[in-house]
């Protein structure tokens, strides 16, 4: 029997690079995040999803040691952050803040060089040269940051975040406001980080992005609503979906599939029948037989992913009902 994918395995001690352990943070009477627990593993991208004000940035700041939790703790390789000095913590973690935060009157190189020296890198100039090459911004090294496009600023900010080669990378909405081409470049860089074995926590609103790059998803709304792989979350809330396209209006065949094994919900959308259930794909032959017997001309049958958006909205709906 093969090993399950890393994202599906329960984490061992060696897998826990960064752990949020029952984190709660209050600002006066307002609870920003409550009792959040998860771990970040090497070589994975964990997406932190949630609406505005859900506590994503607060969670990132807690994990980076920028603010202290009201209760709970953050563990870095199993050691509480309170037991580490700021230098060793910040050497291990790189955080890309929501705004690129470049000094506009400094050139790209000067921005990076200042950070390389602040991190105490042994050869700051060489580290900057490598970053300029890695992020393909060498040709703009002498330009003032103020003259860069938004996408380029984000790329430089990402280069700055990774200058000191942190094993853990926390990214706060890295593609927010970027055009599709720039966003694609940033996503490619994020995937490269995973390939290098780094642990990446990606805070984002972009569900498509999560579907493309994330190994696991944590849905947050003050507290953790769900945590798992996108496939596991889909299966948990919607099971599987079978998409059957027929000739003509599919509505007349909805009742035909009622009561089929493994199918819980059937709905029609024009010529398309959508059958959701715990094992809809496994029961595809039976579903096809029933439809053919009912006179349907079947054009295509294939399993389909429930859009992550549906899972997300379902979770938020559940969360708001519970709260």
């Amino acid at each position: 029997m093969g090993m399950p994918p890393a994202a599906d395995r329960p984490p061992g001690d060696a897998d826990r690079m960064l752990t949020a352990d029952h984190l709660t943070r209050q600002f006066d009477a307002r609870v920003a995040v409550q009792d959040i627990s998860f771990e970040l593993r090497p070589g994975e991208i964990l997406a932190l999803l949630g609406p505005n004000g859900a506590g994503k940035t607060t969670t990132l700041r807690l994990l980076a040691g920028l603010i202290r939790p009201s209760s709970g703790q953050v563990l870095l390789d199993g050691v509480g952050l309170h037991g580490l000095d700021g230098t060793s913590l910040r050497t291990r973690i790189g955080i890309l803040t929501e705004a690129p935060g470049l000094w506009d009157r400094l050139t790209v190189r000067q921005n990076l060089l200042t950070y390389a020296r602040l991190h105490g890198l042994p050869s700051p100039s060489r580290a900057v040269d490598e970053a300029l090459d890695l992020f393909d911004v060498r040709s703009r090294a002498g330009d003032l940051a103020a003259h860069l496009s938004k996408g380029l600023r984000q790329r430089v900010a990402l280069a700055r975040t990774l200058l000191h080669r942190p094993g853990i990378v926390l990214l706060d909405e890295p593609t927010s406001g970027l055009d599709p081409a720039s966003a694609k470049e940033v996503r490619a860089l994020i995937l490269r980080l995973r390939g290098e074995g780094r642990a990446v926590l990606l805070s984002t609103h972009n569900l498509d992005e999560v579907d493309r790059v994330a190994d696991r998803v944590a849905v947050l709304r003050g507290r953790l609503l769900a945590l798992g792989t996108t496939a596991a979350l889909r299966a948990r809330f919607f099971g599987e979906r079978l998409k059957v396209t027929v000739a003509g209006d599919a509505q007349q065949f909805v009742s035909v599939l009622g009561g089929s094994s493994g199918v819980d919900i059937v709905r029609a959308d024009g010529p398309v029948l959508l059958a959701d259930g715990a094992a809809a794909s496994a029961h595809a032959p039976e579903i096809v037989r029933r439809l053919v017997a009912a006179g349907a001309d079947i054009l295509s049958v294939h399993p389909e992913h429930v859009p992550l958006e549906e899972v997300y909205l379902h979770l938020l709906g559940e969360g708001s009902t519970e709260s």
Partner: peptide
């Protein structure tokens, strides 16, 4: 205000 302080605070700078 320039939003450059938070990145600065993520460095080992005391």
């Amino acid at each position: 205000h320039a939003r450059t302080l938070e990145p600065l605070l993520t460095t080992p700078l005391t």
